[in-house]
């Protein structure tokens, strides 16, 4: 299978449809078990407070997975995602709404590939906080 997004149909500046979800404690717990990262910072409020947070925070990789799902839903084929590099810049608390998206910043006609700037953000006290930024992905288009 190949991506459903055709190289001819995209341009620099095009955006990936944004995808949002509310971060729930049960999901973060399930992620801890499935990924093997059982750091108490992501599961135990008392521990999180002891290191200066108001409560547990989501794994950075949990937010990264939301970015990759946003990309693969747009692409239509997980195999079309070839590379991703993300920077974790802020934490995510339980109950926050995480929104991921991306924008095409370069196109390679010979390889039919696109490079995207990608990000994830939450809204906190009326401000948009980018929890993943300065990040990029490379995708193989049809």
């Amino acid at each position: 299978m190949t991506a459903r997004v055709r190289f001819e149909d995209v341009a620099v500046g095009d955006r990936v449809p944004a995808r949002s979800k509310t971060v729930r404690r049960e999901e973060v717990k399930a992620y801890a078990d499935a990924s093997g990262d059982r750091n108490p910072l992501h599961q135990d409020d008392a521990f999180a407070r002891s290191v200066g947070f108001p409560g547990v925070i989501a794994h950075g990789m949990f937010s990264m997975a939301h970015v990759t799902t946003t990309l693969t839903e747009w692409l239509g084929d997980p195999a079309a995602l070839r590379r991703i590099r993300v920077q974790f810049r802020a934490v995510v608390f339980m109950g926050e709404t995480l929104t991921a998206s991306g924008e095409i910043v370069a196109l390679d006609e010979a390889e039919r590939r696109a490079t995207l700037s990608v990000w994830a953000e939450v809204e906190r006290e009326g401000l948009r906080v980018r929890v993943i930024k300065n990040s990029e992905a490379e995708v193989q288009l049809a």
Partner: peptide, 16 residues
């Protein structure tokens, strides 16, 4: 490990 933060992550796939 108490001072460690996950700063960046990169994956480059050859196949799924």
């Amino acid at each position: 490990y108490a001072l460690v933060v996950h700063g960046e992550q990169e994956y480059e796939w050859s196949r799924p």
